[in-house]
């Protein structure tokens, strides 16, 4: 299905591919095929309701994958995002339960995420630790901090536990509300994806991220401060993971430090890689990431709709990740020789 890409293209077509990323075409086709198959297998798949559900279900993963695109494109990796998601969501929940207002509560959570991201960045650059190790350590430390902070008890954001009812209403609206039928989580995802796309494709920061990931040396020769760019990418990731965690606790007004966001980092990285971002750095687009996120979301949804057993679902999700990335890599190879 991607063979057609390898054909000599006319100049106009080639130009379009290079502008809108021939890289994403393979993933987009894979997603399209999946959707067609699911629509045939189950007539509920294409209902507005279900599509909005899928949109909402992938939103938090998607928000984090936008951040992960920056980190991976800069040539690093962040394994601590699931823990940041849990920690910052729970912290915000606790601050709200303690009776504070919406804005300070959100700020505390998001700032905590940014600070953790900066620590990740400092360890991975000036600290000279491989980010795989630095963030693996932070994965454990941040989850540990969440357990210590909550004493392992679930945090439930409700009026009975002390939340101001007005604040509670605003807070739960962020997670549960909808604008014109579109769930708030999806609204946030779309906004963040747009901003992320703009940042990566259209700003000098995005340029620097890709340059640093492509070649550290060449970036340095161009006068780019490799360390600052990487730290900024980690900080962005931390902030987005925190925001996703906050939306999570606003949606289901309860979280538990041992459980919330457990293993989420792998889903986030998988979605980003499926979307064509290179683990080696230097390559990545937000459009690709969104497609990758949708592939995973549509698959989860579709497998349940069609009644596939839970154990077979695990198998199929893994299979699709491998196949999607393999198609991508094979088509690149074809294009690069």
């Amino acid at each position: 299905m991607t063979g057609s890409l390898a054909q000599p293209a006319t100049k106009a077509v080639k130009k379009r591919f290079s502008r809108f990323g021939g890289r994403e075409t393979g993933v987009a086709l894979a997603l399209l095929v999946m959707c067609i198959v699911l629509a045939i297998l189950n007539d509920r798949f294409l209902t507005t309701n279900n599509l909005l559900n899928i949109g909402r279900q992938v939103s938090l993963l998607g928000i984090m994958a936008v951040g992960m695109t920056f980190v991976l494109a800069s040539g690093e990796v962040d394994l601590s995002v699931g823990s940041i998601y849990a920690f910052c969501g729970l912290v915000t929940g606790m601050v709200i339960v303690a009776g504070y207002g919406l804005f300070p509560s959100l700020m505390v959570g998001i700032l905590a995420g940014i600070v953790i991201g900066i620590i990740n960045g400092l360890l991975s650059t000036y600290g000279r630790l491989p980010s795989l190790i630095a963030t693996l350590g932070m994965l454990s430390m941040v989850r540990g901090a969440a357990l210590i902070l909550t004493d392992g008890r679930p945090v439930t954001v409700n009026a009975r536990n002390g939340a101001n009812p007005d604040v509670l209403g605003q807070f739960t609206f962020l997670g549960q509300g909808a604008i014109a039928g579109v769930p708030m989580q999806l609204v946030f995802f779309v906004l963040i994806a747009l901003a992320g796309w703009f940042l990566l494709a259209r700003t000098s920061f995005g340029f620097r991220v890709l340059a640093v990931g492509g070649s550290t040396k060449a970036a340095r020769v161009s006068g780019i401060s490799v360390e600052k760019v990487k730290i900024a990418a980690f900080a962005l990731m931390g902030g987005l993971a925190a925001f996703a965690g906050i939306l999570s606790i606003a949606f289901l007004p309860s979280g538990q430090a041992g459980r919330t966001g457990l293993g989420l980092e792998l889903d986030v990285i998988a979605a980003t890689i499926v979307g064509g971002t290179s683990l080696a750095g230097g390559e990545g687009t937000i459009i690709g990431t969104i497609l990758g996120v949708l592939i995973i979301g549509v698959l989860r949804n579709g497998l349940v709709l069609t009644g596939v057993s839970p154990f077979a679902q695990e198998f199929l999700i893994g299979l699709v990740i491998v196949v999607a990335v393999a198609i991508d890599r094979w088509t690149i190879r074809e294009r690069r020789v």
């Binding site: 340029f207 890709l210 492509g214 040396k217 060449a218 970036a219 020769v221």
Partner: peptide
């Protein structure tokens, strides 16, 4: 070291 091989010619021209 010298070139940003994954990026376009234009991006290489203006990277500094």
């Amino acid at each position: 070291g010298g070139a940003l091989l994954t990026m376009s010619v234009a991006q290489n021209v203006v990277s500094s």
